[in-house]
Simulated scan of single mutants.
Amino acid sequence: MTEAALRPRRSVLYMPGANERALEKAKGLAADALILDLEDAVAPDAKAQARERVCAAVGSGEYGSRELTIRVNGIDTQWHAEDVRAAAQAGPHAVVVPKINSAAEVHAVERLLEQAGAPDHTAIWAMVETPVAILHAEEIARASQRLTVLVMGTNDLAKELHAEHVPGRAPLLTGLSLCLLAARAAGKVILDGVYNDVKDLAGFEAECLQGKEFGFDGKTLIHPGQLEPCNRLFAPSPEEVDRSRRIIAAFEEATARGDGVVTVDGRMIEVLHVDNARRVLALADAVASLA
């Protein structure tokens, strides 16, 4: 696993860039990553001040081990170029770009970052949230080595599809699946979209479990109250860790004996199961290191 893929991103919390109290509160939250938002959460007349505040937060060194990212305004807005240039100078872990629709747009963001002197560690996270983006997801995912993460924008996608937000997300499953395929084909991380009803923790937990079962690396969040269940559900469970250890041990013992057939709990084990078990243990160790 690459370093980018191994880093835990179970919980990725949006924080409004114009809200100084929210940015201060974020320093003590148990989020694996923060998206300091200059887009939807900021009114037009507050964009410039929010940009300064967010870049200062990134440079403060007061957010511990959390991964810090800045969501800039979209390519088609008057604020985009200045947002990207300012973010490049601040040097966050990543710049999150909304409504990326093509590889050409990824290349444009990359050029702007490099022209502004962005450090090598500042990655691009591309938000996939339109039908056009879904249909070009693999092209987007493969566009650049600097692009490391796809972020599902499920609210905008539902709007574009004229779809309803319903339990189980049936109207969005095709898009989610296509983006997961694209991310895995390109070796990139992918984050699930937000859950809007912050008071419905049962529904939120169900959607976290669905996302984990699909294969998402984590979930974007809109409220701190969603952090604990998200961190818990997207981390390997004690049962998964125990089974993974037993799979590896059984396979290594069988290999040493020259046995061609290995079973654990009555199920046949192959190399692919061992690889997955090692991934689970690596992620569990990475999560433990955050504590």
Score class of each variant (00 low, 15 high):
Met1Thr: 15
Glu3Phe: 11
Pro8Cys: 10
Pro8Phe: 02
Arg9Ala: 09
Gly17Met: 07
Leu23His: 06
Glu24Trp: 05
Ala31Asp: 10
Ala33Gly: 14
Ile35Gln: 00
Asp37Pro: 10
Asp37Met: 10
Ala41Tyr: 09
Ala46Trp: 02
Ala48Cys: 01
Arg51Pro: 04
Ser60Asp: 09
Arg66Val: 07
Arg66Thr: 13
Leu68Tyr: 02
Val72Leu: 01
Val72Gly: 00
Gly74Leu: 04
Asp76Ile: 07
His80Ala: 04
Asp83Ala: 08
Arg85Gln: 15
His93Tyr: 11
His93Arg: 15
Val95Asn: 03
Val96Asn: 06
Lys99Trp: 04
Lys99Ile: 11
Ala103Lys: 14
Glu110Ile: 09
Glu110Leu: 08
Leu112Asp: 07
Glu114Arg: 12
Ala116Tyr: 03
Gly117Cys: 05
Asp120Gly: 05
Thr122Phe: 02
Trp125Cys: 08
Val128Lys: 00
Val132Leu: 05
Ile134Gln: 07
Ile134Met: 00
Leu135Val: 09
His136Trp: 00
Glu138His: 12
Glu138Gly: 04
Gln145Lys: 14
Thr148Asn: 06
Val149His: 10
Val151Ile: 15
Met152Ala: 04
Leu157Asp: 08
His165Cys: 00
Gly168Cys: 12
Gly168Leu: 11
Arg169Val: 12
Pro171Leu: 01
Leu172Gly: 03
Leu172Gln: 05
Leu176Thr: 08
Leu176Ser: 00
Ser177Gln: 13
Leu178Ile: 14
Leu181Ala: 13
Ala182Ile: 12
Arg184Asn: 15
Arg184Glu: 15
Gly187Glu: 12
Lys188Asn: 13
Asn196Trp: 05
Asn196His: 05
Val198Phe: 10
Asp200Tyr: 09
Gly203Met: 03
Glu205Arg: 12
Leu209Gln: 15
Lys212Trp: 02
Phe214Trp: 14
Gly215His: 07
Gly218Glu: 04
Thr220Asn: 13
Thr220His: 05
Gln226Lys: 08
Pro229Ala: 08
Arg232Asn: 07
Leu233Pro: 01
Pro236Val: 08
Pro236Asn: 07
Asp242His: 13
Glu253Gly: 06
Ala254Lys: 11
Thr255Asp: 12
Ala256Cys: 11
Asp259His: 14
Arg267Leu: 14
Val271Leu: 15
Val271Tyr: 10
Arg278Gln: 13
Arg279Gly: 06
Val280Gln: 01
Leu283Met: 10
Ala284Leu: 03
Ala288Asn: 12
Ser289Lys: 14
Leu290Ile: 13
Ala291Tyr: 01
